[in-house]
């Protein structure tokens, strides 16, 4: 598409390319990269104690903090919890979001009033997580909270159930809150992805007589891969950083069962003995875990994705040439 014209212009244009990224780069360097490296460096120091500014690089074994963190049972538990809670929330979340996307974008059996449903489903996401955590804490409170009240009124239980002391129940509730706040968001992102797929492809499929289910699995999902990847990666990163809900719902308890890596890091760095160095080491380990997870995901999805994109582009080009209607879709 690019014409010779733009290539001629590109020399003078390059200047503006650099100019326009200056704010991003400057702020990034100062407020993001520098703190990142600062954190990294702190992991190798003896920096602990409230607002300690007089710290030194460790002498001897420079990886002491990292070794201590790796052996720290609470840290191990917190990483495990983070992953378990994320999976417990993400699988139902993405499944439900996909189902709703399929329904709301179905071209044959349309759902009436879907605007209202979308608004309602997305709503929990807009509400402050802190409010939600405390609200759910109140809802599940023992012995006289709304949920216990409901269970007893419906004769599902004789006495109250102490949700706050049961480890599985606490994990499940935190995962549920996450699921409940985020499925609407995921749904909206997926719908926008589906709407982005060229209608010509669907028309071609219609001509071939594909049914709704076939269209969804053979056309929608393959074409949605970029968006799915985006959702998966952002949700994974968000999930690995889960903080507000577990922190405010039960402060990581009971018995560390809802303590996530972020809560652990916060507790190490900003309460108790202010072990900044250990917390920094934990942060960096989490960072590595996140980086590896993301890299694997990108790698797994990259090739097929690129192929799909190329296919899509080809298709689009043909559509642009107004020959799509005669094209068959396999």
């Amino acid at each position: 598409m690019k014409s010779a014209q733009s290539r001629i212009k590109s020399i003078s244009n390059a200047k503006y390319g650099y100019l326009f990224i200056i704010p991003f780069v400057v702020v990034y360097l100062i407020f993001h990269l520098y703190p990142t490296i600062y954190t990294m460096v702190l992991g190798f120091t003896d920096c602990k104690g409230l607002n300690n500014t007089n710290w030194h690089l460790l002498k001897g074994n420079i990886f002491t903090n990292f070794q201590q963190i790796l052996q720290n049972k609470s840290f191990q538990t917190s990483v495990k919890n983070t992953i378990v809670i994320w999976i417990m929330n993400f699988i139902p979340q993405i499944s439900l979001a996909m189902l709703l996307t399929a329904w709301f974008t179905a071209r044959r059996i349309t759902v009436k009033g879907q605007g209202i449903f979308k608004v309602i489903f997305y709503m929990p996401n807009i509400i402050t997580a802190a409010t939600i955590a405390i609200l759910f804490h109140a809802l599940f409170s023992y012995p006289t909270g709304p949920v216990n009240d409901l269970l007893q009124r419906l004769n599902l239980r004789d006495g109250s159930y102490n949700f706050f002391i049961s480890k599985p129940a606490s994990k499940l509730i935190v995962a549920f809150i996450q699921f409940w706040t985020w499925y609407g968001y995921t749904m909206i992102i997926l719908i926008s992805g589906v709407l982005g797929i060229s209608p010509d492809i669907y028309e071609a499929a219609d001509i071939d007589g594909a049914n709704g289910v076939q269209i969804f699995f053979k056309i929608t999902i393959p074409n949605l891969k970029t968006i799915l990847l985006y959702t998966l990666v952002t949700s994974l990163i968000g999930g690995l950083n889960m903080f507000d809900i577990p922190k405010l719902y039960l402060n990581g308890g009971p018995d560390n069962s809802t303590k996530t890596a972020s809560v652990f890091i916060y507790e190490q760095a900003f309460s108790g003995k202010y072990l900044y160095n250990r917390a920094s080491a934990a942060s960096m380990l989490m960072f590595i875990v996140i980086a590896i997870c993301s890299a694997i995901l990108f790698y797994l999805m990259r090739d097929k994705d690129a192929a799909a994109l190329a296919k899509l582009k080809k298709q689009e080009r043909k559509a642009a040439a107004k020959r799509a209607s005669t094209q068959t879709w396999r």
């Binding site: 990034y28 407020f31 993001h32 520098y34 703190p35 990142t36 490296i37 600062y38 954190t39 990294m40 460096v41 702190l42 607002n51 500014t53 990666v233 990163i237 968000g238 690995l240 950083n241 903080f243 972020s262 890091i265 916060y266 760095a269 900003f270 900044y276 917390a279 920094s280 942060s283 960096m284 989490m286 960072f287 996140i290 980086a291 993301s294």
Partner: peptide, 20 residues
């Protein structure tokens, strides 16, 4: 790449930096 870096993991450096 930096899309992956969540603010939480750099918070300690961020706090120390903002404090200083």
């Amino acid at each position: 790449c930096v899309l992956m870096i969540p603010p939480q993991v750099t918070s300690i450096g961020m706090y120390q930096f903002m404090y200083s």
